[in-house]
């Protein structure tokens, strides 16, 4: 059993006076893929955003409770949000490359974080990140063409390359394949399999099959509450909670 990487305890989240998460506690383990599932609006993205404090940028949003990474409270006053976000990368539903070259998309982060200055160092990070994102071979001859000129699946892998270029330990993915066809999806899933050797991955997905294929543990959210979290195998073969079973077998409503 891997060690706990991220621990959320008694999380309540409010948007204004509307509560979106209720007393959510969940441990996520190092070098594993944890999947978050549940009907639309149940709070998956809200929960994901607690892990890199993206909710901080939403004015009306307030977070109560405790999230720690390697035992350190990430909401502590002494934490620099920039270094937290460096450590916790994020990939979104819609691929969102910068309107710049493929090369610049990746070089940007390491440069502003001061991780590398010389051209050779940056070249190396760019190649390395593209390799890890299983994109290098497809783009090595057009590194200086715009990232937006790639296919959707390639763009998503570019965003993954960009996320890993700053050496994070954790990658959050919010429905990363929802705009992709089955082949591009399979490539991302295969990539996740590789990436989990090095990173801790949390993925929100609406595809039960995807959660079953990629994750070790799965958490089911409903109306802002974490209903059940267990090994993915148990969740999809014999979940403990009737609501979970109704949801995954398509009986909700």
């Amino acid at each position: 059993m891997n060690k706990v990487k991220i621990s959320a305890k008694n999380i309540d989240v409010f948007y204004g006076d509307k509560q979106a998460l209720f007393d959510v506690s969940m441990d996520m383990y190092e070098k594993e893929v944890t999947a978050l599932i549940g009907p639309s609006g149940c709070g998956k993205s809200t929960f994901l955003r607690c892990i890199n404090r993206m909710n901080d940028v939403i004015d009306i949003c307030s977070v109560k409770g405790n999230v720690s990474i390697d035992g350190h409270d990430i909401y502590d006053k002494s934490i620099r949000v920039e270094s937290l976000r460096e450590n916790v990368g994020m990939v979104f539903q819609k691929p969102n490359p910068f309107p710049k070259s493929i090369y610049e998309n990746i070089a940007y982060g390491p440069r502003i974080h001061g991780m590398a200055n010389s051209k050779t160092d940056i070249d190396e990070i760019v190649e390395n990140s593209l390799q890890k994102a299983a994109l290098f071979d497809e783009v090595k001859d057009r590194l200086h063409q715009p990232g937006t000129g790639l296919s959707g699946g390639q763009q998503q892998r570019l965003c993954i390359a960009r996320a890993i270029s700053v050496n994070p330990e954790i990658i959050l993915m919010d429905e990363p394949c929802s705009a992709l066809d089955p082949i591009a999806t399979a490539k991302i899933e295969e990539l996740m399999n590789e990436l989990k050797k090095e990173f801790t991955i949390i993925i929100v997905t609406h595809s039960m099959q995807q959660a079953a294929r990629v994750s070790t543990k799965t958490g089911f959210f409903h109306l802002g509450k974490l209903i059940e979290v267990d090994s993915t195998e148990t969740i999809f073969s014999n979940p403990g909670n009737q609501k979970t079973q109704d949801y995954i077998t398509g009986r909700f409503g």
């Binding site: 039960m208 999809f236 073969s237 014999n238 979940p239 079973q245 995954i248 077998t249």
Partner: peptide, 9 residues
Amino acid sequence: RQPLANDLR
């Protein structure tokens, strides 16, 4: 349909 859980059983 890719049945799951009780349906799969």
